[in-house]
Amino acid sequence: MITSGLIGALLWGVVIGCIYILLATGLNIIFGVMKLVNFAHGQLLMIGAYIAFTVTTALGLNAYIAVLVAMGTVALIGVGLERFTFRRVLGADKLNEIFVSLGLIYVFENAAVLLWGNTTYQISSPLQGLQLSLGQDVAISYDMLSAILIVIVILVALFLLLKKTKIGLAMRATSQKSNASMLMGVNIEKVYIFTFALGAALAGAAGALYGILLPFNPAIGALPTIKAFAIIIIGGLGSIPGAVIGGLLYGIAENTAVYFLGATWQDAIAFALLIIVLVIRPTGILGEKGE
């Protein structure tokens, strides 16, 4: 591996945190605009990893171009999901949304098993094995660096999209008050589809990066969903800067905890954090507006 020891754990925490940030931001946008929690969001990450893997192995595409392909394909899947499942249960009983996303977890995980098998893969990147030395005993691989860079680029693009474009304005208006923005002439259905596709695309990108950095199988989706959830609760619902800070904090905390306590406690720690935050602030740290 790369650097061992605490500094290695911290570096790795930052990189993993970046992937979680993408996932959490997607979840956050969807929640902010549609007031919908998609528990199958992590499964979109898993599908993204498989699509990037298939594209690189079957077509011989560069792994970093495959990130774009994964984003596009998963966004299309997102459009289908919004149109055919979530739109039909939106706004009714909250439990129904949870049930539909659980059904989707089953569908995605088992479709992945049927299509790609139950084996573990990793996407081979052109930068594999290369690393940048940062001094004695400390080195960072180029794959990790480019993952961080890609996440930064995506987040900046997302920020510009939300702040400078018309659809971004419509999304922000809808997230504040969907009825009022409908009366102001915003096409809510279009905004919902776009939002869901955007969130799915972010999950797809996160999945492709995950696949480059870590081995994956059809079952990897469940935990990242929960971690992304913990991040948006730590960082505040609806806030992108909050998700960035929360994601970095979370990635670092998780990896240092694993470094000190051992890997068996990794998931339990994730939940313990989530539960502690929720017990102190039942609606999340910044609370939930509207509703």
């Binding site: 528990f39 909250k94 929960i226 609760i233 939940f271 313990a272 929720l278």
Partner: peptide, 15 residues
Amino acid sequence: KAWFLAMVTFGFSVI
């Protein structure tokens, strides 16, 4: 609320 409860109960089962 509904989804937080879903997450927390799932979390407790993992713990």
